[in-house]
Design a protein around this nucleic acid. Structure first.
Lengths: 230, 230
DNA sequence: TAATAAATTCAAAAAACGTTGAATAGCGCA
DNA sequence: TGCGCTATTCAACGTTTTTTGAATTTATTA
């Protein structure tokens, strides 16, 4: 079941879209303001978020900005016709698509499917092989040079998330949200502790570096492809 | 420079789009039929392809199918309004987006940027080789004549940014913003201090000059190509 | 050449990260 | 339900990195 979150204050429109999208096989959750929407995203996993730009209190662009602190979930923006597109999809906000209102449910549905298709290419449950390190999400086990590494649940989640984005930085906020299922608190050292444990279990790379590099103030990064041997 | 390929038989439209997109900073190549388009894709690299669905001889969908045999380049489809959207997006063709014709150049440009942004998130990690200096962003390490140089995070960010723009001046404001993630303050000596550290770790060029030249009042510049030896 | 502005360097303070061990929470099982 | 086990979280302290402030050097201009 594919779970979508629709964040829009327009009751009439949400009702219409909800009906169509549910008929189309999506599981839709509707909230009517940005604050609630953000809270929902922290509490549960959605495959995709549909976000209205024009909302009272907290507008869609601000919501997206905050959302991006802890999640890479695909987002479709709903905009009034004539709004500044560059602002909506351009400015490093990371929206994946936008649709002008009033929109055809049909078109929305088609775009949702297109984006999910693209995302799921990367995001499936396939086994990751990074050098001698094999990660199997289905059985949740990890091996290094054919030797099983015993990781706890949280450790596995963190390693898998980092490995999925191998070579690029993942923020602590996102790691906490996605791997531990809760937002990062202030003075929250949890991720650091888990990373420390993972490093101890994984040891060092042949070249002597860490598997996981820390990027001060930004997050952690899985080292890949490897520099020296391997 | 970002190179786009536009494949469309409608001369009027291509002229219009070409003008706008070039003004927007893209380098645009236009061809008027699918066969030629495919040939171009085989011969040179494009960052993104814009492909009309309705074309004589070889229609856009067939072009896309063949293109996918040898390339994963992002593709935006241009469709006539009213065509069956699901056919276009749904058929697992691997198009990244579609736009209904007649389209606003503005909208096309925004969508191009959105897609490139997403693609470059993964692909913006090219290894740089400048003489004996190798910089690997995926493992965040730097080596000089095969010897590892231990740089801290901020030092790495600054060096990588300068090396990306090797030969041209990068302002302190930009260095601070991009590498340290915060705007340059007044009386801010941060960048200078980091540059000083980087220089100490890198030593001098064979010819005796600095790897990084300071340009008084303007910023810093990675010395390249090198004057003397190297 | 003197005055001024910018850049370099050093040293110390502040912030972020690494690690450890103890406290707490969650789970299976009798 | 209560016990025992393990995983997770919390708190503390040491280390490293970044930032800040000040002294010194270098470049520019009058």
């Amino acid at each position: 079941m594919i779970r979508l979150l629709l964040i829009d204050d327009d009751i009439t429109l949400t009702a219409l879209l909800a009906e169509y999208l549910q008929k189309d096989g999506f599981h839709l959750t509707v909230v009517n303001d940005g604050i609630t929407g953000l809270r929902y995203c922290q509490q549960q996993q959605f495959e995709l978020v549909i976000l209205d730009v024009m909302m009272p209190q907290l507008d869609g662009i601000s919501v997206l900005k905050q959302l991006r602190h802890f999640s890479n979930v695909p987002v479709i923006m709903l905009t009034a016709r004539g709004e500044d597109l560059d602002k909506v999809i351009g400015l490093e906000l990371g929206a994946d698509d936008y649709i002008a209102k009033p929109c055809l449910p049909r078109e929305l549905s088609a775009r949702i499917k297109a984006i999910l298709r693209r995302v799921q290419q990367n995001n499936n449950q396939t086994e990751l092989k990074l050098g001698a390190l094999h990660i199997k999400p289905v059985s949740r086990n990890v091996s290094l040079h054919q030797h099983m590494i015993e990781l706890t649940g949280a450790e596995f989640n963190i390693l898998y998330l980092l490995a999925q984005y191998a070579g690029s930085i993942v923020s602590k906020a996102e790691l906490s949200q996605q791997a531990l299922g809760k937002p990062l608190g202030s003075y929250d050292r949890n991720i650091d502790v888990h990373i420390s444990h993972i490093r101890q279990k994984l040891g060092k790379l042949p070249a002597g570096q860490q598997w996981i590099t820390s990027v001060r103030g930004k997050g952690y990064q899985f080292t890949y492809p490897f520099g020296g041997g391997e």
